[in-house]
Write a protein that binds this DNA or RNA. Structure first.
Lengths: 177, 177
DNA sequence: TTCTTGTCACCTAGGTGTTAATAT
DNA sequence: ATATTAACACCTAGGTGACAAGAA
């Protein structure tokens, strides 16, 4: 079982139509896609993966591999297109004929409230204001309210991943180590 | 085969008698222990480890586990004692009776120029000056020379690890993930 | 005395939306 | 018109030695 962290914040963005800035150099998502996983076998190995499905129609589909060790592969998102993030937990089957059990060894989780539109500049001013109000790194643009925003992630939660996205221009160099 | 990075800088510190500040909260080493490894099998798994041996006499000995994935375990160093860092490369033997080959499956590397004395405050003013001159984070204390120090690590080198050290007071909480 | 601790100003490093310039 | 890019001020986050106060 998997539980989305900061669900209230995701809901608030989703109500307005979440937008995520994409840049050539890569840009973090905010809110961060962050989950708690329950019911894992402490002795087993797992792979944690994430990908983004185009929602409406569109043709592009790019996988992103993320694990707790933060090994991830770049993805490319098209600006002005809408995407649905997905989260996959893959059990690393120690059996030699593990391919036979591939279908039963993974589970996919979709949180609809994490849908977003990739943009190069915000289209909805209310989204901009909500980002400024809730993202600590945008504090410099706040007018009022020096208070009472739920700060960052809750202690005790496991940050599984933070994702980068880019516009369609290919990058030549891998991310700095 | 393993090659120490920033050897010239290590040599310069070693000539004066390298000192490393230790604090309760943990303090990074500077220079950073950083190596290039040659001759690895790209298809094999390895474990990279580090520990610190007391040099002169002294009784304390604490292991530190470091890997390229930066999983590490705290260590405790005694202030005013001298230590010799060591670096171990362990081949993860896929054979079922791998314990039998344990002795031939690892290799230890010692760079004497990385010896240092753990201190809570610098004892040698020339060490302080060399730290200020060569560590970018201490730039605020530089008088002159806005120039020409070999910046940080060379691009292309693999940073295997950076180590933390602490004074002997036990810490209650593990490092933030 | 000598060593240790906590606080601080001053940095590095990098994540924000803004804005003006450019591309489409 | 509309979408994208690059530079920027303003933040968060955290790594420095200095320094004063405390401990041994």
């Amino acid at each position: 079982n998997v539980q989305l962290e900061m669900k209230a914040l995701w809901d608030e963005f989703n109500q307005l139509g979440t937008e995520m800035i994409v840049t050539k150099a890569g840009r973090r998502m905010f809110p961060t896609f962050q989950v708690k996983i329950f019911g894992m076998d402490p002795m087993a190995d797992y792979m944690l993966l994430m990908d983004f499905l185009p929602v409406d129609d569109k043709r592009y589909r790019y996988p992103i591999n993320l694990s707790a060790k933060e090994v991830y592969i770049y993805i490319i998102l098209n600006s002005m297109h809408r995407y649905q993030p997905r989260f996959h937990v893959v059990y690393v089957d120690p059996r030699k004929d593990s391919e036979k059990y591939a279908e039963e060894n993974y589970k996919t989780f979709v949180f609809e409230e994490t849908r977003f539109t990739a943009v190069t500049a915000y289209q909805n001013h209310r989204i901009t204001q909500l980002k400024i109000a809730s993202n600590p790194f945008a504090k410099g643009f706040r007018d009022c309210d020096p208070e009472d925003w739920p700060r960052n992630h809750r202690p005790g939660s496991l940050q599984i991943m933070s994702a980068f996205a880019r516009t369609r221009n290919p990058m030549s160099s891998p991310p700095q180590q």
